[in-house]
Amino acid sequence: MVNHVPAPPRYGAILLTMNDRPEDFPRALDSLLAQEDVELEVVVVGNGVVPAQVPDGVQAVTLPENVGIPEGRNVGALALKSEPELLFFMDNDAVLPAPGLLASLAREMAADARRAYVQPRIADPDTGVTMRRWVPRLRAGDPERAGTVTIMAEGVVAVRRDAFEAAGGWPGHFFLYHEGVDLSWKLWDLGHTGHYASGHLVHHPATDPSRHAVYYRLVARNRVWVAMRNLPWPLVPPYLAVWVLLTPSRVRGVAALRTWLGGFREGMRGGWGERRPMRWRTVLRLARAGRPPLV
């Protein structure tokens, strides 16, 4: 009797670089290349730069200008020469502390045929703290509680390639912020689900996204775009109203609020791209999963 050993899961992994993290980037890449029990193809995309510190065997793609994170990741996925079953998107300052992480995420994906994406738990390497924005559900008080989720923290996530392509990939024109909400909702509308695999850990420094000058503008603009692209028309006004009401208590100062409102107005003027509203059945599924598409 012949024992058939299952083939290792095949991954295509994409990292972006602007050559501005000469210490973090090699650590991130080394931890990725150290993964065991998987077939792995890695693509590094230089967003407006020629990628530096890329070892032999890793494909480097140079973009003449910075096209933003979601479009850079789309470019990386298209550049894959193999046909992997899974895609792994990873920030270039994240580290995979266990060499079996990708294999574990593949098993989590295979545990339920409906799953299109699996997100590990992200924690700061020094403090062990998992920031609220890294927990892909409303009740984020216990970051170690696993389960079905309706959005993702897109900085470290595994996605089934066939589902990713059917959803149209990341919304490239978002440049930065909320692209994970857009992709998650599209995957759910295709009949899939997402899973938060909190038992599998990734390290990522707990930085403040508002350090970026464009943060408040793009967060507001893309919040509008997410709604316009994905929600049935009756849900668009209440979704946007919720964020208009919540934002004054969340932003830091009058200047930041003014920038946020400017981004909100920019989003309302258009530019969101193709409108593909989710089915009402998807709205119900999202609500049953604990996060109706209103917050």
Rank of each mutant, 00 (worst) to 15 (best):
D126L: 12
N74S: 14
R211V: 11
V251E: 12
R27W: 00
V45E: 04
D30E: 14
L201C: 11
V159A: 10
D93Q: 12
T247L: 12
D37L: 02
L218T: 02
T259A: 09
G191M: 10
R160D: 05
R221D: 03
V156N: 11
E274K: 08
D162V: 10
S82W: 01
G72F: 11
L105G: 02
F88Q: 02
N92W: 04
P292F: 02
G46C: 04
M90A: 11
L105D: 07
M228F: 15
M228K: 15
R160H: 08
P171V: 11
L63N: 04
G262Y: 00
A77S: 13
L40E: 07
V58N: 15
R258H: 06
G100K: 07
S198D: 05
R217I: 04
L218M: 09
V44W: 09
G271D: 06
V283A: 11
H203K: 06
A255F: 06
R107L: 07
R145D: 05
E85A: 07
V181S: 04
L80W: 09
H212N: 11
P84Q: 13
R276C: 00
N66C: 04
G68E: 08
A94L: 14
N66T: 04
T207M: 11
T130Y: 02
A77H: 04
A7N: 01
V44A: 02
H178K: 15
P136C: 00
D189A: 13
G262I: 07
P99T: 13
G155E: 14
L235V: 11
H178C: 13
G76H: 05
T150Q: 00
P99Q: 01
F89N: 10
A52N: 06
D124Y: 00
G72L: 14
P6E: 08
M1V: 12
W188I: 05
A116G: 15
G253F: 08
S198T: 15
F174P: 11
L294M: 13
L235G: 10
R132H: 00
P99W: 03
A116H: 10
E36N: 15
V295D: 00
D24W: 12
P248I: 15
G253I: 10
E108W: 03
A287T: 07
R250W: 12
